[in-house]
Each structure stands twice: as C-alpha cells, then as structure tokens.
Design a protein around this nucleic acid. Structure first.
Lengths: 142, 142
DNA sequence: TTGGGTGCAAACTATTTGCATTCGA
DNA sequence: TCGAATGCAAATAGTTTGCACCCAA
C-alpha cells in the first residue's frame, strides 16, 4: 500500500524537492494511489507505518508538495483542506454525508471554456465541485 | 446602502425566520446589494451602522440564513467562508491576489450536465470556481 | 408568559510560526 | 561543514458552544 521508495525519491528530486526522510515517508503514503487526504489523515497514516513525523512537518510538507505541483489542494469543506494525489485534470464529487471526496473524469462534465478575464489575469485553476447527499435523510456528517 | 427594513422583515418571515432586531440588521447589510462577505466583514459592517451584534450571533445568523436558503455559502478560501447574497444561479471567479470573489453569469460558463450519480444521491449544488491571479507577480494576498 | 434568540467568554480545531536541534549533500 | 529541514510548543484565526439573560409573539 505504499509507493516504491526509490521512485518516490526520484519524483521529489525531479520537482526540485530535497528528499528528506519524513518527506519520503509522507510521499509514500500519498502516492501509493490516487486519494484525497486531509493533513490530519496524512499524519495518522504516516505514523501508523513506522516513522514519526511531527504535525508541523506534515503541514509544511503538504504545502510544499502542493506548491511544487505534486499535489492538488481541494477546497470543499470549510473545516479542512484535502490533498489530492491525482494530478490528471478532473472534477470532484463531495459526499456531504460522509465528508469524503470522489473524482469525476473530465469526460463526464464538460465545461465550455472560460469567460474573458480582465487583462493581466492568469487562470490558476478551475474547480468544479458537485455536492451530493443521500436523498432521504438530510443528515449532516459528524 | 441598506435594504428597506420592512422588505427585509417580510423576506425573513417568508422563509420561516423570526425577524429579530439583530437578524434584521444583518439582513439589511447583506441584502443591500449582491455581494460576497465573510462573517467577519458582516460583523464589522453591521456594527459600523449602529446596532451592536455579537460575533456569535453573526455566525449563528449567517448559518441560519444559509440553511433557510437566503444566502449561498461559497467555499473557496480555506481560511473562511463567504456568504453570497446573489441567489441567481452563477459561478465564481476568485482573485487569489486580493482574496475577493466575483460573480460569473451562468451564460459564460456552460457545464454540460452532470454524471450519473450513485442511486439515492441528490445533488445539493454545483460550484464552479475559476481561480485567477495577476499574471506577472505570483503574489499572495496578505 | 415563555420558549426561542442573544451576548459573552471560553472552548475547539485546523493551521502557522519561532527557535533550537538535526540532517542531507 | 552549513544551510535547509524538523520538532515541539506556543500562537493564530475562524468558528462553535454553554449558559444566563432578554425579547418577540
């Protein structure tokens, strides 16, 4: 369930990131597969393996990875940021009941190109988020 | 710059909300025009007028208004929630430099209908957010 | 009157920061 | 070696909550 150590190190290097022990630990968890994790979940999973990484380092590292383009930040829940290890262009389905995210292939939602932006503005990203919940009970996840 | 008191009261009533003094104060600020305000900005503007409303009441009231369909919550900034008094369907442009929001008419961004959802799931909302920043300097707003 | 609404302050949670220590190249 | 990275704990900021008091109906 964890990505190959050597591959991960190479990947960090190729993005200009010094592969320290804890960064590699974190990367192995994140890049094991496509997933959406909060900083807290990353902290838990990383420390469940073996190594001990501090909370501050997890936050710093996630921020760094996102900045360097290794992760995509997904902002759907006012309570916390999700980090998405799937870098292919795609959209998101947010399950309000469980507070979990699901990917939607771009092929399934077509966004006809953007409006003309004010001059001197560059698009940093386009997020499409579909919020769903179980139809019957309007439960709020705890 | 503030909506008519009587109209506001009527609007609250029609949504099943008891029009108390502070709720009316808050509503007058919000519904004066289409805008995107954070809880903190609402607090400041309300108390700049005259009345004194507590921070807790502002949060409670904004949450209530959103729940009753008088406001739309916009989640774009991990730091805070924006409340949008424009209820017409529309999308958002987020200026990362200034941390401000701008509306985009639906006519300018076409989302070809949604993917088939898991059974028993209802769509609560679809958010399209275009993040832009000044092209030259990758400044982060303070 | 009387239960919902409000204010205040304290509690919480996610995230950031300062600084001394440790580690990668 | 030496600057970058880490850990820890304390600081922040937005938001929520508990509880006594107050007001709309």
């Amino acid at each position: 369930m964890s990505a190959d150590r050597t591959q991960v190190i190479e990947r960090l290097r190729s993005h200009g990131i010094t592969p320290t022990q804890q960064r590699v630990e974190i990367a192995q968890v994140l890049f094991a597969r496509h997933q959406h994790l909060s900083a807290d979940q990353v902290l838990t999973q990383v420390n469940a393996r073996d190594a001990s990484v501090s909370k501050a380092t997890v936050y710093n590292t996630l921020g760094l990875f996102a900045e360097k383009g290794l992760l995509r930040e997904v902002i759907v829940d006012p309570a916390k940021v999700f980090y998405d290890s799937n870098l292919d262009p795609h959209h998101h389905l947010f399950h309000m009941d469980s507070g979990t995210l699901e990917d939607i292939p771009v092929s399934q939602v077509n966004v006809d190109r953007l409006p003309d932006l004010p001059a001197g503005m560059a698009v940093e990203g386009v997020d499409v988020i579909i919020r769903v919940r179980r139809s019957g009970a309007p439960t709020v996840y705890p």
